[in-house]
């Protein structure tokens, strides 16, 4: 009797396991389909972790992510350069960013170029002890925990995504991350207002400036980054143009920034484009408008050409 009962239950058990597995499988298939719908409008970072290793790189914070357009380099110099810049929270110069750069860099060639966007924020810290690596903000952000930055799809990124997955899979933003890493923010010129700049200026003045302190460690890591990249090509340091008011705040943060840069070694040249800032249009004072990003990139390329690149 018991044997019969067990056989009977065993069959229903098998049916149950089969149906449960089918449900799980269907869920996995739907999820996988969704993963392949992620595009440049889904997330401002994801695609950067899905491309292959890159030879030449644009590095820095969101100013570089939005302000330097790799396609201009390809058109004018016939160089494939990849924009691997994130935000001031994620990618100020430091151990986390340097490790991530090492993972992204294709070191086969030795004649690459590297554009490192530099500014006082990128070598400062937002913590009590600016030189205490354990307190760096980026330690808890995606660059620190993503080990494989060249995988399509990138399950590591998806698994560790700290927002609702809806934002990644279904929500489309006004930002478009191009396949070359350029982050295009789709704001029309008519949408740019003084109020957004004033707001940004106030945020920088009231909230960011008091919390931010120059970090010797970050400055050393900028040097380490230059030294590392120097083995595989030429390194250029670039200060991207910003609005007058933001520049004033930046000078309050680090008035001798340009002098500090001269203390660095191993780079081919340093260009301070804040001197020609009045030629450009900014979305919020801190970032170039997409049209100005292209203009600026052209100026940058022609400067590099003049410099016998």
């Amino acid at each position: 009797m018991n044997k019969h009962l067990f056989t009977f239950n065993f069959n229903t058990l098998k049916t149950f396991i089969f149906k449960t597995s089918l449900f799980c499988l269907a869920s996995i298939i739907i999820t996988c389909c969704l993963i392949f719908t992620i595009d440049g409008r889904s997330d401002p970072f994801y695609l950067r972790f899905t491309t292959k290793k890159q030879s030449s790189l644009i590095l820095g914070t969101s100013r570089a992510a939005q302000g330097i357009v790799p396609s201009i380099f390809r058109d004018s110099l016939n160089i494939d350069i990849y924009n691997y810049a994130f935000t001031v929270g994620h990618s100020p110069y430091g151990p986390v960013y340097l490790e991530s750069i090492k993972k992204k860099l294709d070191t086969k060639n030795k004649n690459n170029i590297y554009i490192l966007a530099v500014d006082p924020w990128a070598i400062s810290s937002w913590c009590e002890e600016p030189d205490n690596i354990n307190q760096f903000r980026e330690n808890k952000l995606c660059l620190s925990y993503i080990n494989n930055v060249n995988s399509l799809p990138n399950f590591e990124f998806i698994y560790n995504y700290d927002q609702s997955p809806y934002n990644l899979f279904l929500k489309k933003t006004k930002m478009l991350l191009h396949t070359d890493g350029w982050l295009e923010v789709e704001i029309n010129k008519s949408e740019i207002s003084n109020s957004s700049r004033l707001k940004k200026e106030e945020t920088y003045r009231q909230e960011h400036l008091p919390r931010t302190k120059f970090s010797t460690v970050r400055f050393q890591y900028l040097q380490k980054t230059i030294n590392y990249l120097n083995q595989f090509g030429e390194v250029y340091l670039v200060r991207i143009p910003i609005h007058d008011k933001i520049l004033q705040i930046e000078n309050d943060l680090n008035f001798d920034f340009n002098e500090k840069i001269t203390l660095l070694k191993g780079y081919k040249n340093y260009y301070d484009f804040t001197l020609i800032r009045n030629q450009f249009l900014f979305t919020d004072g801190n970032h170039l408008h997409r049209s100005s990003s292209k203009d600026f990139s052209k100026i940058l390329v022609s400067t590099l050409i003049k410099d016998n690149l």
């Binding site: 969704l34 609702s164 997955p165 809806y166 899979f169």
Partner: peptide
């Protein structure tokens, strides 16, 4: 099931 995956909160 999909809602659980897509709309999960922190």
């Amino acid at each position: 099931g999909l809602s659980i995956f897509l709309f999960k909160g922190n």
